[in-house]
Every structure is written in structure tokens, then in C-alpha cells.
Simulated assay, not measured.
Amino acid sequence: MAVLHNRVSQEELKRRLYEETEPRTTISFYQYFPIVNPQEFRDSLYKSLVTLKVFGRIYVAHEGINAQISVPSSNFEEFKAALYAIEPLNNLRLNIAVDDDGKSFWVLKIKVREKIVADGITDAGFNMENKGKYVNAQQANDLINDPETVFVDMRNHYEYEVGHFENAIEIPSDTFRDQLPMAVDMLQGKEDKNIVMYCTGGIRCEKASAWMLHKGFKNVFHLEGGIINYAKQIKEGELPSRFIGKNFVFDDRLGERITEDVIAKCHQCGKPCDEHTNCKNNGCHLLFIQCKECAEQYDGCCSTECKDTIHLPQERQKELRKGIDKGQNIFNKSRVRLRPRLNEKEE
């Protein structure tokens, strides 16, 4: 029987990744299409991709597939052939990372989920087939100059913080499921304007565009392939970038630089910085922005408390971590439950 799950420790897998000499290509893709038996689909896909040394994170559901992966560059064409052999995925657009060292993933994980992106939608009348129109990079640049157009960022607040389209509306939430009703509320009175939804790779803004049409908005568009594809198109077409800063990505890189603009600030000292990191204290692991100077001062931690903790014996650290549910531990100065200003008073 074929092995359908990884059996090697994370530490060993990371070691192997960093010892690799062959370059890897980081890719993201998604497709909304009906899958009758997600578990069967998942197992077949795993057997196909693991032999090609594909690493990454793939979600499969009745509504489709969502993937962020890396593949040895020499296996890219074989990977593409295997993917395109699945009829609904034939000629699927693959978003190839623009700022990539190939060290984005170190293991292949394919999980069956209820949905490929959690949306909170229970409305039986909602139909993904009625979605907004695609716009490419040139069309997006043209639309952003139109006063009758509203750009809407369908990413989380920490993604928006380090980079976004000029004058885009932020939907300030930690989750996509909260953003959908918030977007409808925030855009009341703009039903006749051009509404351009965008996100990292296209999966969230595609569903958001369908939801806005479902809620009565008339002229809804979404950025084809998201910011990742936009960055590729402006580079190839030598177009000006109307996206400013960095595109947050959900892998070990935590970001792809689109322009040299640094629009965020270090959460500890307040100086310009857009480098996300996770607190080195495994009992915290807070995702926050930290400059190099503060990284040195706090040993990569978010606070003096966490800095002190990582220098304790490992057994003591394990004791302190027992029973802790970090959940989605992300810095957000608008929320009291997380440190409003790391080691400093609120500005």
C-alpha cells in the first residue's frame, strides 16, 4: 500500500531542504470545480505529487482545490503534466513566485476540508458560477485611475499593512468569513460603481466578487491571479506598479517584495520596516513586524518576557507551554487581547 502521509520529523525535513542544491520553483494555484469524493481525489493527488518531490500545502474540498507548493525546477514540466492530466485543471494558471529562494516549504501536506477557503456562507442561493469579471494588470492600472472605481483589499489586516494598491479600502479583520459581510456594509451606496476585489493569489477575491454580485452590486471585477500574477504581468509588460510595498505570502518567506516602498513600521520601535517574523518563543509564536535592531535586542522575540523564556532550560519551556492555545496569534494594535504595542505604550 502506498504511503499517503509523511513519516519523517519536521526537523529532519528542514535539514534536507536546506541541504538541497537543486533550485526549486514556488507556485500557487486554485480552481473552483466540483469534487465528488475529496478524500479519493486527495489520495490520488498525493501519490502523484510526492514522487515528484513536491512540497507544500494543498486543501481539497467539494468546491475545488487551493495550493501553495514548491517543486524542483527540473521536475516542473512533469509536475505541470500531472496536474493538467486532471481534466478540470487542464491549462490552469500557475502563479509562480517573483521573489523566491525555493525554501518556502519542506513537506507535502494535502488536507481535505469543508471548503478551500473558509467563508462562513450558509446562503443556499449563493452560486460561485456567477462571479465578477477578471481584470489583468493593465486593466487594473486603468481602473485605478477612474474616480468611479473602488479597489477593495480582501486580505487580512496584517497583509494590507505591508503592501496594498493605492487608495484601496481595507476590510479590517483577521478572517475572510468576517470580511464578506463587512465589505457589503462598507460599500453600501456604491452599488453602481466599479468594484475591484483583489487578494494574494485570486482565490479569496474570486469568491468575494461572486458574493458582491449576489448582494446586488452590479459592476464587480476581480484581479486575475491576485497580486502574485499582477506582479508578474507588470514586470513582463514593463508597467508601473500601482501596488505599493510587499505582498504577504503564507509560507516560510512571509513576503514577496513588489516595490521598494516600505509602508509599515516595526511593532517594537516604530521605525519603517515590513519584515514579518514569528516570536522565537514557541509558547507565543506571535506573528509581528520586527526590524533588525529589535531582532537583536529581543533575540527574535516580541517582548522581554518571551526573550527571558527562550533562555530557560527546554524542560522548563515545555512546562510553561502546557495548556496554551495560541490560536491565531497575530499582532493587531486595534485589539486589546493582543499586545497593543509591543514593549511600548500605544502611539
Rank of each mutant, 00 (worst) to 15 (best):
G120Q: 06
I121Y: 14
A97K: 00
D123M: 02
E114V: 09
L83W: 15
L94F: 06
V112I: 09
F76L: 15
E78R: 11
L83H: 03
I110F: 06
E114F: 06
I86Y: 01
L83S: 04
E77N: 14
I110Y: 13
L108Q: 14
N90C: 15
R113C: 10
I116E: 03
E87A: 11
L108S: 10
K111H: 04
L92C: 13
F79E: 09
N130W: 12
D123T: 00
D119V: 13
W106A: 09
L83K: 11
D99G: 03
A81W: 08
E87N: 12
N127M: 03
D99T: 03
Y84C: 04
S104G: 05
R93Q: 15
E129Y: 06
F126I: 02
A81S: 13
R93G: 12
W106L: 09
V98R: 08
F76S: 05
I86G: 04
V117Y: 07
I121L: 10
A118K: 15
L92H: 01
L108Y: 14
I86Q: 04
V107P: 00
Y84W: 07
A124S: 06
V107R: 01
N127D: 14
K80N: 08
N95A: 14
W106C: 08
A85R: 13
A81F: 12
G120H: 02
N130T: 11
W106T: 07
Y84N: 00
E129N: 09
L83Y: 10
K103N: 06
L89N: 14
N95V: 10
A97E: 01
P88I: 08
P88C: 09
G102I: 01
R93D: 14
E87H: 14
K103Y: 02
D99P: 12
N91T: 11
E129H: 13
E77A: 12
L83G: 08
K80A: 07
V112F: 09
I116L: 11
E114P: 05
L94N: 06
K111T: 06
D99L: 05
A81K: 11
G132P: 10
L83N: 04
A81I: 11
G125N: 15
L94C: 12
G125T: 14
M128V: 10
G102R: 02
N95G: 15
A97M: 07
A118T: 14
P88V: 08
L83R: 04
A118G: 12
G120E: 03
Y84T: 02
K131E: 07
S104W: 07
N127H: 03
E87P: 12
D119E: 10
L89T: 12
V112Q: 12
